[in-house]
Amino acid sequence: MIEPTRPSEERAPPMEAVATIHPPSPPLEEVVERFWEAGAELETIPIRIEPPDQPMAVLEQLGPSPFPRGPFPLIGFLATTYEKVSRYALRRG
């Protein structure tokens, strides 16, 4: 597990579940010569701020709510949230 670079000053989402399977970063002293540069591959990442190929795909993967008798229809609430957030991101993009 990688430690955060600095203790968070706010209540924040977790870091513990962050994937750690990426190659480790080299010490800074070893990369001073390109200290201010981004890797060339950065420019190869396509920018695709687009609607999902299949709306609500995550919800479909998740299946029924873990709280079927809960006071709110969780899946309905999430479906609304997905649509709303997706529209927001598309506007920003």
Binding site: R6, R34, E41
Partner: peptide, 20 residues
């Protein structure tokens, strides 16, 4: 790709009390 292409300066903050 994002992770691999991060400019080193982004990691310049360091961990308090730790060796870079």
């Amino acid at each position: 790709i994002l992770i691999a292409s991060m400019p080193p300066v982004c990691r310049a903050l360091g961990v308090p009390g730790s060796s870079l």
